[in-house]
Design a protein around this nucleic acid. Structure first.
Length: 262
DNA sequence: CGAGTTTGACCGGCGC
DNA sequence: GCGCCGGTCAAACTCG
């Protein structure tokens, strides 16, 4: 899988100064304030996870995908058809695959006239009960940009999957952590999320300690909050994401203006 | 051995 | 009718 190839961007590339890593285990606050903090963190975590879920459910692509309306100048969008653009990992420069949390079966590939890169055709693996199809093709201008076109709506839940987005339960973090625990010691933990690798550093006093011993402490709402904040930060600083988000919002608003012709 | 992918063939819509 | 093109099929193939 592309996520495990670790070829993606990292918020704190391995080998960089420790200042780039997020301190996880600061000096312990008094127990009473910790409870409050945990409650707050839990609530915020739920809120962000919910917002993210809503965003992703509305437009099926996750990964580092950015869903957007069809360009305003393009032909009127067909109902149930959504276009999603996503930056591919450089390590996957040849792959036409977009991880969006659903299970797809490829049923064809075709070179089209206006694009030197082949277009791949996928059907939801739940077909024929699920009618959703998608087409994935690299952008002719930017070969690292994948353009996916989704047709139809899934009539089933996403499959549980590692390396997707921060979920509201601990399983994702746990899987990553157990992976980390496979090694004797850890000084940072990398989590692939939204197609990016987020590296969270452990404080000095934890360096070299047994990974399994660290896992229990790291599986906390605090840790997950750090993850969500790191994710939000990544997206905030991603000009491409912000640009696409802005155009999507503007398109939605224009749709709601009576008399507006898109 | 089953699930998933590849790839050439085939089909239908569309413009000329 | 013909050719082009996008989309789909299905047999062969690969991989775990």
């Amino acid at each position: 899988m592309e996520a495990s190839s670790n070829g993606g961007e990292s918020s704190s590339p391995a080998g960089s100064a420790a200042s780039g890593l997020l301190p996880l285990f600061g000096p312990s606050p008094p127990p009473e304030s910790l409870e409050d903090k945990l409650r707050r963190a839990r609530a915020e975590n739920r809120r962000l996870a919910g917002a993210m879920d809503a965003m992703l459910a509305g437009r099926p692509a996750a990964g580092n995908a950015v869903a957007q309306q069809a360009p305003a100048a393009a032909a009127e969008p067909r109902p149930g058809v959504r276009t999603v653009r996503a930056r591919a990992e450089p390590a996957d420069a040849d792959a036409n695959h977009l991880n969006d949390g659903y299970h797809w079966r490829k049923y064809g590939q075709k070179v089209t006239r206006d694009n030197p890169y082949p277009r791949a055709y996928f059907r939801c693996a739940h077909s024929p009960s699920c009618p959703v199809k998608k087409k994935v093709q690299r952008s002719a201008e930017d070969k690292l940009m994948l353009v996916a076109t989704y047709e139809g709506e899934h009539n089933h839940a996403r499959r549980p999957q590692q390396s997707e987005y921060v979920s509201s339960d601990a399983s994702t973090s746990q899987q990553q952590l157990l992976q980390a625990a496979g090694s004797r010691t850890v000084n940072s933990i990398s989590i692939d999320s939204l197609g990016r690798t987020i590296t969270v550093g452990l404080p000095e006093q934890r360096l070299g300690s047994n990974a399994e011993a660290v896992v229990g402490e790291v599986l906390t709402p605090e840790f997950r909050k750090v993850l969500v904040e790191e994710l939000a930060d990544l997206l905030k600083n991603d000009s491409e994401f912000m640009e696409s988000l802005t155009s999507a919002v503007v398109a939605r608003m224009m749709e709601r203006i009576p008399g507006h012709i898109s």
